[in-house]
Design a binder for these strands. Structure first.
Lengths: 157, 157
DNA sequence: CAAATATAGTGGTATATGCCAGTAAAATCC
DNA sequence: GGATTTTACTGGCATATACCACTATATTTG
């Protein structure tokens, strides 16, 4: 209908991010998704891999995701045998998330494909803007940002 | 668990955008969502308002969203009487999307709240980085970007 | 220690979003 | 003009994600 520059919605940061999110998920999934895993699932697997057997709680925090949302998202991965939950020794409420061997193998496989997608991204946007963007987005995703956003109340916080 | 800077996932653009998307949806919704509409729905209403009675197809394109996804997303809005679909005169396949009076009124209401959220965002990130970010995201969301991404051969890594 | 409170997860419900397989109405091609 | 192809949408199914209410387990308090 018209180009994004003409679009009033370039004004809304939240919409902008969501829209870009749809586009990138699409693009990355076209490359990564062949095996049947979506980009979100891949990033979850990777986060689990590097997360030192995180509890669901801490995993959710790292993903900036609601705990129950994480739980739901994990279900298909557990069902398909890529991930397992093990009760924490000390705290019987907590369950730690861990990759199965199959999950690890799949993750390793996908890393290669991810690299391809990521390098395309860097190539198209330019490596500098690309890194700058990720820094900015990391800040936006941080707890500091959320706190500042909430405090920046109209008059005296 | 750790700060986002420590996170290997700062390396993935797609995850970064998704994570930021969750954070911002959350933050904006806390301000906008009081009346019961989510940010996504608000941006949809606004896009419809400015879209000159778009067909679902063109609306989906503007939103960088799958057509069927748009259809699903519109359902609750139609059910709640904020939006209506009118068959196109010329092309009987097409249906144009239009705000009802209730929808327009609600949209207008929410614009005020949105402004508050947006100004907080600009305040926390800084207006310049904020605008730069939106420009970058608009580019990422564009068809040009998608084409370039798809064309950029693997040689480029 | 028992009661009150806080924390970690689970399950239900609802929206968000995508893919695929139809259906119906153009548009195109003999 | 009828068969083929393309286009615009619909419906079903699956994942993504959030909120709320509930349960089980810890932690804090009196």
């Amino acid at each position: 209908m018209d180009r994004p520059e003409d679009n009033i919605w370039m004004h809304c940061s939240s919409s902008s991010v969501r829209r870009a999110s749809r586009q990138l998920s699409q693009l990355y999934d076209d490359i990564i998704g062949g095996i049947g895993l979506r980009g979100t699932q891949f990033s979850l697997l990777t986060q689990i891999l590097y997360g030192n057997e995180p509890t669901q709680k801490s995993l959710a925090e790292a993903m900036v995701m609601d705990l129950s949302a994480l739980g739901h998202t994990l279900k298909p991965l557990i069902r398909d045998g890529l991930v397992e939950l093990v009760p924490d020794e000390k705290d019987r409420r907590a369950k730690r998330v861990r990759l199965t061997d199959v999950g690890s193998a799949l993750q390793a496989d996908l890393v290669e494909k991810w690299r391809e997608a990521q390098s395309r991204f860097d190539a198209v946007l330019g490596i500098e803007k690309s890194e700058e963007l990720r820094r900015t987005l990391a800040f936006i995703s941080s707890a500091e940002f959320a706190q500042a956003f909430e405090k920046t109340g109209k008059t005296g916080d």
